[in-house]
Structure formats: structure tokens, C-alpha cells
Simulated scan of single mutants.
Amino acid sequence: MKIRAYAKVNLALDVVRKREDGYHDLEMIMAPITLHDLIYIEKIDHGIQITANTNRMPTDQRNIMYKVAQLLIERYQIPYGVKIHIYKHIPTQAGLAGGSGDGAAVLKAMNQIFQLNLSLETLADIGKEVGADIPFCIYEKTALVKGIGEKLEFISKDFHCYVLLVKPKKGVSTKKSFGMLDLKNAEHPPIMDMKEAIENNDYQGVVKCLGNTLEEPSLKIVPDILKIKEEMKELGFDGALMSGSGSCVFGLTQDQELLEKGYQFFLNRYAFVRKTEILNKDSLKL
């Protein structure tokens, strides 16, 4: 069976507070994008086997796909194993939910292969035991996301926009970014205004509300993030922001020629450069 695992960007990310359990309460507007990993998965007699087109990710128990497969096999007493091969296109330590997307895709694929007939809601509940972004990746819909990522309120309106992704060579550890965060002096973007702008198909409103509390600490770890943002704005992109905890930066435009111009400008300057767009219902037909 073949399945796509879509990446995401955070159009707005607010770290609201630190909780007693050490986690942070977040409010975010997350949008899936058309960039995806391609996963082939099949039933085998026993065990979990993972292979990849890259040696940059572990293929053992540390891999998020291994963790969700093992969890599903144990919880539903599946008397078989799975063989997984992944063509990895989403970079790691980028803030694009590459790992979570893969985990969500494996859960959905195994649900079909083993005819478990689990709802998306149940799959999301299982997924959040392994990764906070997995519930969002199960649904692949633009959403207001709260808590540590488990509370989802979907935004039903499609939002059309071209997205240029540029990631410097160095990534950012999510744990390190949160650890360096100064919440008292941090930026808190207007999350509900962003939600309203998308619902009203107000592109300029979306651009105006772009913001990410984690950008400042991540900039200290990878200064190239700021340089990429500045270069995108100089080229004419309407807005530029770091996604998640970084280090990938995305630029927004409704001009396809500018998207191509930006792609050519950044292509040999940084480690990862991709043209993509916000994933909507009509995108899934591609």
C-alpha cells in the first residue's frame, strides 16, 4: 500500500504558558502543505522492518513510524508485522512535522491493511501518545490547535497560497528552542485574528497576523533563519516566517512567477529549497 505523509507550516504559533508538567500550552494555526514523504507499507509475518532512501534517520525503535506500528500491533493484538519503505522528502529538525506526518500515515495505512475500522478520532488519540503533532497530521486540515497539540478546531474554508520553503543546513532541537524561550518578553501573535482572516479568505489579513513565539530563541541557535526571512522580503514575498521551532522558513505569495524567482535565488544557497502550496481539498486530487 502507498500513502502520502504531508508536511505542515505554522501560520501562527503562540506559546501561552508553561504547565506544571513541564510542557507548554500552545495556540497555533497549522496548515498542511503539498510537500510530502511517500511511504510504502505491507503486511509481513512478524516484526517491524523500516528502510529509507536516506541514512539521516534511524530505522529502529527510535523511529516514530516504528513506535506507532508497535503501539497498534500491541494494543489490537495484530498477529502480523509490517514492512515499511519511506522516500523521505520532508527535512528533519525543520518545524514541518516530517516525523509526525510519517507516524500519522502509518497509523492510517495499518488501519486499512488490518481492517481495524478505527475512526480518525481514535487514530488521533493513539497518535498523541507518541507525538503531539500526530493528531493534526491524521486529519490533514487547516486548524486552530491548542494544548500541546491535541485540541483541534478545524477551519473549513480553503486558503489558497503559494509557499516557498527554505531551510539552512543546521536544524533546531524543539527542546532546546523551548528551553531558551523567555516567555515574559516573548511575542504573542494574534491567533484568533489569523483564524478569522482564513475564514474570510483575507490573504492580507493572514500576512499581517504571521507570528511565532519560538522564532526569537531559534534565531539564536540558527542566525540564518533571520537572513532567509530578510532575503524573502527583499525578493517581494508578502510574508516570511519560521515554521514550528525551526529551522525552516516559509515565504507566502500569490504570484507564481515570484515563487519561481525565489526558488531560483535560494536554490544553491541553502540546504533545502522547495516550492509548495497550502493543501486544500482540491489539492488531494492531484
Rank of each mutant, 00 (worst) to 15 (best):
T34C: 09
K233H: 05
F265Q: 05
Y139Q: 12
I84V: 05
P79Q: 11
I39N: 07
V273Y: 13
A7G: 08
I90G: 00
K208W: 10
N53I: 09
F272K: 07
I134F: 08
L71Y: 10
I3N: 03
G95P: 01
I41W: 10
L279H: 07
K8N: 12
K167W: 03
G22L: 11
V68M: 05
V130G: 05
H89E: 10
I155N: 06
P189R: 03
T54G: 02
N53K: 06
D125L: 15
L13F: 10
N53R: 13
Y76D: 06
G98W: 00
Y87N: 11
I3W: 15
V16A: 06
T213D: 01
H160G: 00
A104N: 13
D224W: 04
E150N: 12
L26T: 01
I73P: 02
A109D: 03
K167E: 05
M242H: 07
M180S: 10
V15H: 09
F154Y: 06
L38Q: 13
V207Q: 10
D45G: 13
K43N: 09
K285T: 13
F159D: 02
G127T: 08
L219Q: 14
A240H: 04
Q61H: 13
N200G: 09
K220N: 12
I33C: 12
R19C: 01
R4L: 15
I41Q: 12
M232I: 02
C161P: 00
N53Y: 10
G251K: 07
G262R: 07
E215H: 07
I148D: 08
G211N: 09
Y66G: 02
G147W: 12
F272T: 06
E74V: 07
T174L: 04
E27W: 01
T276P: 06
K184H: 12
R4G: 10
K229H: 03
L107P: 06
A7R: 08
G101N: 06
G22A: 13
I73R: 08
P190A: 11
K141C: 02
N280E: 04
R4I: 09
G98C: 08
S283E: 02
D255W: 11
L144S: 03
L267V: 00
A105R: 01
Y80C: 05
L72T: 09
I134T: 08
K275C: 04
S283V: 04
I113C: 10
N201F: 02
V206T: 02
Q254E: 13
Q204D: 13
Q204I: 01
V163R: 01
V172Q: 10
M1E: 03
I33S: 11
K176T: 12
